[in-house]
Nucleic acid binder design. Structure first.
Lengths: 155, 155
DNA sequence: TAGAGACTTGGAGTGCACTCCAGGCAAGCG
DNA sequence: CGCTTGCCTGGAGTGCACTCCAAGTCTCTA
């Protein structure tokens, strides 16, 4: 019985318009953190934090210790972004990342985790639709009032 | 570029099953806080907090100072619950409550606020659908692997 | 080779939406 | 009359997901 299911504002704000505002720089396979920032829209802080909490599958480093992300990392961040959009708790994503690291014998549990989440997403879609009905109803009332006061109905 | 769009776990957990686990006690029109807790699924803490932040349209009191909610209050809490399900920030709901208190001359702004939110909800539904596609894809892979290892395809 | 700008770290801070606590009042019951 | 139960208050605490800071290192351009 508690809170917690967020979809970052940032995500909502950016989702359609600046999606892929920077296409993936093809084929280099060793991206700096700021390139990944441009690509994903996440902040560098957040990327480092993801790593700290175990949400990234071991990011490579340059000889001086700077992060170098691969195409595989970007693919992973795409998936994480999708899951995040649906409000999957970070803890669940970390669990999934853990399973991926553990190897093929965790396939069953991964499937189960994703299936459960899919059910959740379906339920949420249904909830949102039912809210849309309420919004439509309310908005219709206000719109009717506005049209009336604008004189459209006063002929 | 920041967080914040929550749908309480509580809400998601309760939404289908124990919806209306306690039907509205008809016609009394003076409900105690614990009756409202049963009806809405919100905690008493949360109900008092809603009032404190201006999300409730002035709740009546008994002669000893205890809250007495009306049917109108329950209707309002239903709407708030719907908006909350969609992850509308509490600040926005407070703004809406304010407009309602201010009277009919705020109809236009209320319509605008709800319309903007409706767009938001529609966008979120679309996002969720696109995530469903990704989940389906992933789950198919795991399921195919499982079937293969179960020998279904080894004939 | 100097300076700007990008990168590193651990840990502290932020904002949201609750959630709980201490201390106290009021009503009903044996 | 004492006891339990339900309610009241302001303010502090919680959990999540970031977000920022300080202080230092590295890299690139002029």
């Amino acid at each position: 019985m508690t809170v917690t299911d967020r979809v970052p504002m940032s995500v909502r704000a950016c989702s359609q318009l600046d999606r892929q505002r920077h296409a993936r720089p093809q084929g280099r396979d060793r991206y700096t953190i700021s390139e990944v920032v441009d690509y994903t829209g996440l902040s560098a802080h957040t990327l480092r934090w993801y790593e700290r909490i175990g949400l990234m599958p071991h990011v490579d480093r340059s000889h001086t210790g700077q992060r170098r992300y691969t195409d595989k990392d970007l693919d992973w961040l795409d998936l994480v972004g999708k899951l995040r959009l649906t409000g999957m708790p970070v803890a669940d994503m970390v669990r999934y990342a853990q399973l991926v690291r553990e190897g093929d014998h965790t396939f069953a549990e991964r499937e189960h985790l994703l299936s459960a989440h899919r059910e959740d997403v379906r339920r949420r879609i249904a909830e949102l639709h039912s809210t849309l009905d309420v919004l439509d109803f309310k908005i219709d009332i206000y719109a009717a009032h506005r049209r009336a006061s604008e004189g459209v109905l006063s002929i």
